[in-house]
């Protein structure tokens, strides 16, 4: 069915995720209003915006966890109707299964519906190593710090080898030093796996540190304010002039909370 590209409107072939005129309202707020943007294959895209601008709603729409009221989300050329193993998700509050060990959590997605990898144990070990938790593979989530929990969250999302990694403020509740380390690790992993990443955050520094492109959102109604490409070599130095300039530019776009919108 996806071969009938002649009848489809011509999209740039490298677009991995296309969000088309998506709107979603909750009781009193317009969380998303007519949002359109796209993410290229292998791109690291950050979405920033004030709280309540619908960043999480947008991510959940891409994940297939929430249906938009109108508009559509495409992954490749397939419209999203439900969650799928092609899109891994990392949650803000980790959402680890507390009754499973680190290994059991990482393993979860490999067994759905049935284990298909040649050697699942080896795959799990490889992922646990990748996030640096070798010594904790038999620990339960309650025994881990916030940063370690989120490493498990990342390894668990990576296990089914998704093409897309969706991250919802994943480092929001870890301390600043751990966050820096996790940023570096995440960029390493991304370089190895060449996944398409959509990373939601309200931290502008974090967005400029990580992203190829930053989508700036505005609140109520949730719209895309602008899209800024970050043209800097990695690893990025937060004190560098260009870095500071990007941060200032995005802050301008967001508008300061005091004098209202930009």
């Amino acid at each position: 069915m996806s071969e009938q590209s002649s009848t489809e409107p011509e999209e740039a072939p490298s677009e991995k995720i296309t969000v088309r005129n998506v709107s979603k309202a909750y009781e009193s707020t317009q969380a998303l209003y007519d949002i359109s943007f796209s993410v290229s294959e292998g791109e690291f895209c950050c979405v920033v915006g004030p709280s309540g601008c619908g960043k999480t709603t947008l991510l959940r729409a891409i994940a297939g966890l929430d249906d938009p009221d109108s508009g559509s989300v495409l992954v490749g050329e397939e419209p999203v109707t439900a969650p799928g193993l092609d899109r891994g998700m990392v949650f803000q509050e980790y959402a680890l299964f507390p009754w499973r060990t680190v290994r059991g959590n990482v393993r979860f997605g490999l067994d759905r519906p049935a284990c298909e990898c040649a050697d699942c144990e080896a795959r799990v070990r490889e992922l646990v190593d990748l996030v640096g938790l070798e010594e904790f593979e038999d620990a339960y989530p309650k025994e881990l710090s916030g940063g370690m929990k989120q490493r498990v969250g990342i390894a668990r999302a990576l296990a089914p080898d998704p093409e897309i990694l969706l991250m919802d403020e994943p480092f929001g509740s870890v301390d600043a030093r751990t966050r820096d380390r996790l940023h570096a690790e995440l960029l390493d992993i991304w370089a190895q796996t060449e996944q398409t990443v959509v990373f939601v955050t309200h931290d502008i520094d974090e967005a400029v540190t990580l992203a190829d492109r930053v989508v700036v959102m505005d609140a109520d109604p949730g719209t895309v304010q602008s899209t800024i490409s970050i043209d800097l070599e990695r690893p990025r130095e937060r004190t560098a002039h260009e870095f500071v300039d990007y941060v200032a530019r995005i802050r301008d776009e967001l508008g300061s909370p005091v004098d209202g919108r930009y």
Partner: peptide
């Protein structure tokens, strides 16, 4: 939610 993104 986490389980459904992991294929349940």
């Amino acid at each position: 939610d986490a389980a459904s993104t992991l294929g349940v």
